[in-house]
């Protein structure tokens, strides 16, 4: 599974990355988590408000407020 966390490096972006990692660990699945911080790259992925979460090419979350850890797990699981 391909997971991408997109954000230029704000506090919420770090939180989102940590949550994605924890969700993957708790779900016990194989996933490659990539952090994308370049603004051009972020825009290229179709994310307009950060942080963004892309799972297998689909935008599952963008912007604030952040989803809960449970929600992130759900989003990831639905693609597994």
């Amino acid at each position: 599974m391909e997971i991408k966390v997109l954000g230029p490096g704000c506090v919420n972006c770090h939180k989102m990355e940590a949550m994605a990692k924890q969700a993957v660990t708790e779900l016990g699945i194989e996933a490659n988590i990539e952090k994308i911080t370049d603004i051009g790259q972020i825009a290229m992925h179709g994310i307009l408000s950060t942080p963004g979460l892309i799972v297998n090419g689909k935008i599952r979350h963008s912007g604030k407020p952040l989803p809960s850890l449970e929600k992130v797990k759900e989003l990831i699981k639905s693609e597994a």
Binding site: C10, I39, I42, A43, G46, I47, L48, S49, G63
Partner: peptide, 15 residues
């Protein structure tokens, strides 16, 4: 539409 200055750049590019 929610707006936060940290998202101004990706927003601009996206638009």
């Amino acid at each position: 539409t929610p707006f936060c200055s940290c998202s101004a750049v990706p927003l601009f590019i996206g638009f």
